[in-house]
Simulated scan of single mutants.
Amino acid sequence: MSPVKPLLALALAGFALNAYAHKPWLLPSTTMVESKDAWVTVDAAISEDLFTIDHQPLRLDGVTVTGPDGAKVELKNAMTSRMRSTFDVQMAKAGTYKVALVSQSVMGSYKLNGEMKRFRGTEESLAKDVPAGAEDVKITRTASRLETFVSANSTDDAVLKPTGVGLELVPVTHPNDMRVGEKATWRFLLDGKPAANQAFSLIPGGVRYRGTLGEIRHSTDAKGEISFTLPEAGMYLVTSSWPATPAPAPGQLPPMPPRRATYAATVEVLPQ
């Protein structure tokens, strides 16, 4: 996997449950295509306002598309402009495709000659990020997953199988078959095991036109599952992070755990 750019790593590490931070996202033109020649276009960006192209592009180096047969699918017509990236996905086979950006980063701090230093990089760059003689070294390893799902002519569950690494959403209700007013059931896993009492947030698109964030917050049960009903159709960004961050002391940054896992996905709720 290609090393994640520093600013992208910062966005991926910090997006979950922080509704006002810059958020990375993958936004498909639609999540369900019924056509003999099925294509979708995906926008990829990091923005302050959700699904608004207002900050900078999401680099496509680590983006992968997995088809219903498990094979990797080439990104077509990929390009990166000033504030967004975009690419097409040709869905030659019927079924569900997963578009994902999965990354692992290392960040932390140390003291050198009495001065506090901070760093951000990868496991491979850790040796040079922390120099010899460093003291009071604190390291946090973050596993981040950003994804969306699209289907051509029919849906299936092959790409929904968990990898067992980091924080993952396993939709019991297929993500391309959710409709307003109907109940959806989701399951969150942490390293392949149920993520009990896992908090997550859903933010619907169109914030700039609503004038309010419209954030919805839920938590899973002891089995890592939840059933809920979404009140409106549209595109939503789902975000979650582990572990929960305790409130910082006055005038201080929140303490960083030795390991973090974050998850985000764009899902569409269809009208009835």
Rank of each mutant, 00 (worst) to 15 (best):
T52I: 08
T86M: 11
Q90M: 12
L60N: 03
L58V: 05
A16G: 15
S47H: 00
R59Y: 06
L75P: 05
L60Y: 04
T31F: 03
Q104E: 15
L75W: 09
V89G: 07
P57R: 00
T41M: 09
A71Y: 08
T64C: 03
G70N: 07
F87I: 08
G62S: 10
R59F: 06
A21C: 08
V106Q: 13
D61M: 06
H55Y: 11
D69V: 05
H22G: 02
K36I: 01
L17G: 02
L60K: 03
W25V: 00
S105Q: 15
Y97Q: 09
S81Y: 12
D37R: 08
S81L: 15
Q56Y: 09
I46A: 02
T30Q: 14
V99C: 10
M83Y: 11
L27R: 04
K98T: 07
Q56E: 13
S81D: 12
T52Y: 04
F51G: 01
V73F: 08
A71V: 12
S103E: 15
A92N: 14
P57N: 04
E48F: 07
A19D: 09
A45N: 02
D61N: 13
V63M: 05
M79I: 10
D43N: 04
S105H: 14
M83C: 09
K98W: 05
D61I: 06
M83N: 12
S29F: 02
K72T: 12
K98C: 10
D49E: 11
D88N: 13
T66F: 02
Q56C: 08
Q90R: 14
G14T: 14
K93S: 15
Y20E: 09
D37E: 12
S103N: 14
I46L: 07
N77A: 15
S35K: 09
H55M: 06
V89N: 08
A38K: 00
T80R: 03
E34I: 09
D43S: 06
V65A: 03
L75H: 10
A94V: 08
L26R: 03
G70A: 07
V89L: 12
S29D: 09
T41G: 06
S35E: 09
S85G: 15
T80P: 01
S85W: 01
V33I: 11
V65H: 01
A78W: 02
V106H: 12
N18Y: 05
D61L: 05
P28D: 05
S81R: 15
V42S: 02
S29M: 02
S81G: 12
L58H: 03
Q104I: 14
A21H: 04
T64E: 10
K76P: 02
T31M: 10
D49T: 14
M91T: 08
D37V: 08
T41V: 14
D88S: 13
A16S: 13
T96S: 15
M83R: 14
H55C: 06
G14V: 00
D54E: 08
D88L: 10
N18T: 08
G70R: 06
D49A: 11
P68F: 07
P28L: 04
T52A: 09
